[in-house]
Design a protein around this nucleic acid. Structure first.
Lengths: 245, 245
DNA sequence: AGACATTTAAATGTATGACAATTCTTTTCA
DNA sequence: TGAAAAGAATTGTCATACATTTAAATGTCT
């Protein structure tokens, strides 16, 4: 492992970077055990708390895991797709909320990315995917469903569509785009008429997917995008009316 | 800030989670100052080193920044798109390398996502984008260029295509997909004939983009995908020949 | 009064040492 | 032989102290 450090930063950050580089470069492979905290503090010439701060930084990025006990220590962690979803979604959500991203911009990105999955999903969707999507549609038809519940079901519906492509890389990248938009979507009030429109599009989309008709899937996605943008405009219009009458 | 902690985890992880939740939920807004480390250790009933480990975890995710001095402390950080690129790329790269993702799967995901940008880029690309892409094409034509250099230029070319959509959300998500594949691409040896083919496709793609012809852009992307898959198959075939003759 | 130097205070950064908790290994004893 | 007990290695946590940085308060001189 490299012991060359970049100056002008916290020691713990420098040490974390050195170890991270060793992992990314492949110098430390999956499940390799790092030296003990005591050895690392010797190697880098710092105290144990400083080493620990560095290790916590890496643990926060799921690059290492730690085990106590005699045969314990810090081990290079195998980063798995399903584990990476959470961070990806959190980061996407924060990026949208902290940078005042237009609803239109986020919406455009989301549906553009979803469209990318349409041909693959149309080819590979299984009966399970179709059943899961129809189950969500059924849930969306419940009269007592709250707006948040409707939104959550919508997200689940679309994530199943994405998973239909049977490509974990695609699912990973789309998770952030789809779930990250949920807070923005939650600002929308879905009238009964709005819901009916969306559900009709969901049904048409699922039918096209069942028929393995990629063009049809893309068409319904485009229609959903337009519908969602319209709802977003309505919310903004209502807010403008209220704040500047 | 919530002081309710989830058991069965390191204290520093629990505290980091509590603060992270407060940030994600909006309870702590951008640029808000967290209590000092001494106050936090009082609040959570733990020692200062433990609090510091928690803060380092958050700093590793760019959720907070710290400042020394009298008016210093830990502040909620505004997560910016360009800062988030780095982590996104690192994570994507590790996901591919640590999970033995097929070249085909990664390639499929990458070009599917890039296709999603085609219509928007065709609509919005500026002269600057076109110039940058043609500059990369010129670089790719240099005879002395190494395979790594060719690859890096290829990545730059495609990222410019993505940026042409003028949608930061899209650029963010695509950065991981495109750059994360670079290590896989670096395993390919590009013969002079391969390069000529790819460059021809790049030229055709850029021409279609200049003509604002989305269908043309998508067609060239599909061709590039096929070409890349072919090169990947060649590498695998060569390796199979060598390891099991 | 104003400008400049000094002190002070608050905060993070780092070090030291100790002890607790956990887990595997080794030894001991029935 | 087998099970219990001791031992050793390692991470988790704590308490305390000191170093460093930064801004504000204070003082001093012109």
């Amino acid at each position: 492992m490299k012991t060359k450090l970049k100056p002008d930063a916290d020691l713990s950050a420098q040490i974390a970077k050195a170890i991270r580089d060793a992992i990314v470069s492949g110098e430390l492979i999956v499940d390799a055990r790092l030296p003990s905290e005591a050895e690392l503090s010797e190697t880098f010439g710092v105290s144990r708390p400083t080493v620990r701060e560095a290790l916590k930084r890496l643990a926060a990025q799921s690059l290492i895991r730690t085990q106590r006990g005699a045969t314990g220590g810090a081990f290079v962690n195998r980063l798995r797709f399903d584990e990476a979803y959470g961070d990806q979604i959190t980061t996407s959500t924060l990026l949208l909320s902290m940078n005042d991203v237009d609803f239109e911009t986020a919406c455009e990105a989301r549906f553009a990315l979803e469209r990318a999955c349409a041909p693959l999903s149309a080819k590979r969707r299984t009966a399970d995917h179709l059943a899961a999507m129809r189950a969500e549609i059924h849930r969306q038809q419940q009269p007592g469903l709250s707006d948040e519940g409707f939104c959550a079901s919508d997200v689940a519906f679309h994530r199943t569509l994405v998973d239909g492509a049977e490509n974990p890389v695609l699912s990973y990248h789309l998770a952030g785009a789809v779930e990250g938009m949920q807070p923005l979507m939650n600002m929308i009030t879905f009238s009964a008429r709005d819901r009916a429109r969306i559900i009709a599009l969901h049904v048409a989309l699922t039918d096209a997917l069942e028929a393995q008709n990629p063009v049809g899937v893309e068409a319904q996605l485009d229609a959903l995008c337009q519908e969602t943008l319209r709802l977003g405009r309505d919310v903004r219009a209502a807010r403008t009316r209220n704040t500047a009458p």
